[in-house]
Amino acid sequence: MSAIYLLIIISIITAFGFLMTFLWAVKSGQFEDSYTPSVRILFEEEIEMEVENENTEESKNATV
């Protein structure tokens, strides 16, 4: 039964790790803005697509 002492201490240390992760997430501002990142992630993609489109158009023009 003495394994319980060890297991409980390990479990609490693990849980403590999650608590630290949570505190870090708060500290790094992840809870402050839940909207802008969702928009931001789309930007690069759109820009790349624009560039690609332009390229394809240019190549089309070239072939014509």
Binding site: I12, A15, F16, F18, L19, F22, L23, V26, K27, F31
Partner: peptide, 17 residues
């Protein structure tokens, strides 16, 4: 509000354990 989230998180953690 940041320190408030700390407080909430710690209280929740301790409560669960």
């Amino acid at each position: 509000s940041k320190s408030f989230y700390y407080k909430l998180g710690i209280a929740g953690f301790c409560f669960g354990n």
